[in-house]
Write a protein that binds this DNA or RNA. Structure first.
Lengths: 210, 210
DNA sequence: GATATTTCTGCACCTGGTATACATGTAGTC
DNA sequence: GACTACATGTATACCAGGTGCAGAAATATC
């Protein structure tokens, strides 16, 4: 049962995290643009060529941590209890994530996460790279809506785009509040309130805007 | 009344378009990644340094054409007739743009535009760069909603994100149909229908999804 | 322990983008 | 029209991210 991954696989995993951690430490210390990949490779005791074997681009040294979340919305929709609307499942999941201080909600004030967000938001190249995850998340969510809700392709894509966009705004809003110095606990009520209003807006539409 | 822009200014404008056109011609011929900026500079009879004085990055040689549209949604909202809801103004504007075959709707099948879109969608670096315009458009629209509709900041940002996201999906959908070979005229009815449904969804919300 | 297969490395190389220092052309002034 | 002031363009060298390649080192398999 306990299939050991094998020495080779374990070593690969260790090298990977060693590279990533060396990179992030340097980035947090001096800023993304002021650290060269050559330095990172040296710090991780690895050749530059090897670094690029693990991470296809410099930006990925940071944003690979968000890779799991790119399929999260789709998973939540697929795994929702029968009889639950996708929107309700996503709202419940987001509120729960706020409670857990899930970094993906922006509401986590541990220094490591906070500083990482600060760097991320201050570095256009990283924001651009995150945009790709956003696109992938949209596509995945649209598929999930197509399959499990009885949505036809276009409405599914539209709904997915709206949902992901809103999630992004909420996360950014929290991250900005925390990078401005607020604590996660202090921010939590406002974050909940904002999320509730956002999902209500999604459910009822923009018809009230005048 | 006819204030001549001056020789200097005219020359600048000519160099600028010469560079951009040389670039796009080469890109369309061989693909974005297979053309180096050195080649473009040579083709435009300009030094590489000068090229970068006009366009800060290679991608901008293409996407600078979309720069105007980055403020379009905000302008539409600000210029709407009194008593009109922002959503209605934006819907009317989009439908009108479809009728005009505005390239920004994706519904323009002139070879130049079609090939440009094809290249754009096939080149991740360009899509990423367009993402910045999307972000800027969101921010601008949110401001406009804040000022002219009586929306508070967060709802305005949420609504703007949703609106821009939907616009993007509709445009992509049209562009994909056209790059697949359909003519703009043939696509037009479906494009209108899609837009109507999309704006209806925005207005009434996702509450129906189950 | 021998061998096949990954993985890692060093090196040369390409390309996007910038710094510097200098040449050229344009605009206004006398 | 010559003179100055300034904006613009050029050549060159340079840096950093990223790739191709050939071979060395480590791991897995027998």
């Amino acid at each position: 049962m306990t299939d050991t991954p094998g020495l080779r696989e374990r070593k690969k995993q260790r090298t990977r995290t060693a590279i990533s951690e060396a990179a992030i430490a340097l980035f947090l210390d001096r800023g993304f643009d002021r650290v060269s990949v050559a330095e990172i490779a040296e710090a991780a005791e690895v050749s530059k060529r090897t670094l690029f074997a693990y991470f296809p681009a410099k930006e990925d040294l940071v944003v690979h941590r968000f890779a799991d979340h790119e399929t999260e919305a789709a998973r939540v929709v697929r795994a929702r209890p029968p009889g639950t609307a996708p929107l309700d499942a996503l709202r419940a999941h987001f509120l729960d994530a706020l409670g857990r201080r899930d970094p993906f909600t922006g509401l986590n004030d541990s220094p490591a996460v906070r500083d990482l967000y600060r760097m991320l938001l201050a570095t256009p190249a990283l924001v651009a790279r995150l945009g790709r995850f956003r696109t992938a998340a949209e596509r995945g969510l649209a598929e999930a809506l197509c399959e499990t809700a009885d949505a036809s392709p276009l409405p599914a894509r539209l709904a997915a785009a709206q949902l992901v966009a809103v999630h992004w705004v909420l996360t950014l809003d929290n991250a900005e509040a925390l990078t401005a110095g607020q604590s996660a606990d202090a921010r939590h009520p406002a974050a909940r309130e904002a999320a509730e209003r956002a999902f209500a807006l999604l459910a009822r539409g923009l018809g009230d805007l005048s």
